[in-house]
Design a protein around this nucleic acid. Structure first.
Lengths: 214, 214
DNA sequence: GCGCTAGTTGATCAAGCGATCAACTATTGA
DNA sequence: TCAATAGTTGATCGCTTGATCAACTAGCGC
């Protein structure tokens, strides 16, 4: 997109292009690389134009984060459409199966940068809440049709999300991929939603098994 | 420490004072605030002196992180000295009980900054390994005396640590303290080490209970 | 074909960062 | 007491960041 971009675009289009460039930078180089000059270079545009189209860089960073994470939630929501145990299975396999390191890095950086960027912190809270609502709905669906037994869906949802985030953040730093991640997470989730062992991620599909429970 | 610090100290002492100032800044304002000028101000010293005593700021940040986290590990190691189930109980209560937000923030920032600071990234891996070794030893102790049943101690240890980190990182952003955190984590851990429900954190001591498992 | 609107840019500012180095001086050993 | 040692500092450089603004001009409506 170097040559043809000399054209000048209608405001809405340019705005969208810059948002796209910011997202690309965030996923490739991290949220901290979403700078005036970084995004401008990605969009092949003068830095001042990026500033022109967003009230502040803090806002652009927050908006970029929200866009990336909301898209991920939509995707997962689509994959986890079946009945509750299958949906939990799809959720864990998708989020812990690897290949999402870019999004995980965005999450981790958002937590860190959020301490100094109030708008980003608000966006992080919003997105966490959105994920939480989605998972609570999943649990409620399971509780309604009797496939799950959950005393405190709110707390269980927070816990499952925290577990996933922590494991993914860990994978960001560790070198080797751990095949047992999905299986172990499945055992933990089963214990929290009153499902028998293997109901979420069947042991024969998982690579490593946890200890025996007689 | 403004007036008396006009004195000049022997190298070792000054070095220790600067390390202490760096640690204080990291715990109060975050790892990202550990800058030449930030640490110098905290130690009431010229910025050049901080540079004089450390090869680079990247190194000082990495060293500060390692110091904080290693101290936490020592503390927890001391608290978790009993038999395995009790040790797990102490571990979860200590790390998830709240009041450690400063250290959690340091962890999260280290993950994020580690992507751009190779020395810090190495320190993060080292400390994660140290925590992992400590937890694997705890699990091995339990397996040896028959109080735990763990097929893959390595994987279970990574999982428990990831869960703790994720829940703590979450607590960093969420406003209210969730009373169910310890109890739910205990259920998850019990499921992974072959312990009956309530063996790690007794339900009557915990605030919220997870679903029933018949 | 022309002019006005609106998209775009280069130049520039202040602030904060890490790093370097010559110069200053408190302290100590002879 | 005095000089050598070693701890300390101020000044300064180059770099990156976000932000602002006057000036330029492409493209649309008439």
């Amino acid at each position: 997109m170097p040559s043809t971009d000399r054209r000048r675009l209608p405001a809405a289009e340019r705005r969208a292009q810059i948002a796209g460039a910011a997202r690309a930078v965030a996923l490739r180089d991290g949220l901290a690389a979403v700078t005036l000059r970084g995004v401008a270079a990605e969009a092949a545009v003068a830095p001042a134009l990026v500033a022109h189209y967003s009230p502040s860089m803090e806002a652009l960073v927050a908006e970029t984060f929200a866009g990336i994470v909301a898209a991920e939630l939509d995707e997962v929501r689509y994959l986890a459409g079946g009945d509750a145990p299958d949906a939990l299975d799809a959720l864990l396999r998708t989020l812990l199966g690897g290949g999402r390191e870019d999004v995980t890095a965005v999450w981790v950086e958002a937590w860190a940068l959020g301490r100094r960027n109030a708008e980003l912190a608000a966006a992080v809270r919003d997105q966490m809440d959105a994920w939480h609502v989605a998972l609570v709905e999943l649990l409620a669906r399971g509780a309604a049709d009797g496939s799950l037994t959950v005393a405190d869906p709110d707390a269980v949802a927070w816990h499952v999300l925290g577990m996933i985030d922590g494991l993914n953040a860990q994978a960001l730093v560790r070198w080797r991929q751990d095949d047992a991640r999905v299986a172990l997470a499945a055992r933990a989730v089963e214990a929290m939603v009153g499902l028998p062992r293997g109901a979420v991620a069947a042991p024969e599909r998982a690579t490593v098994d946890a200890g025996e429970t007689p």
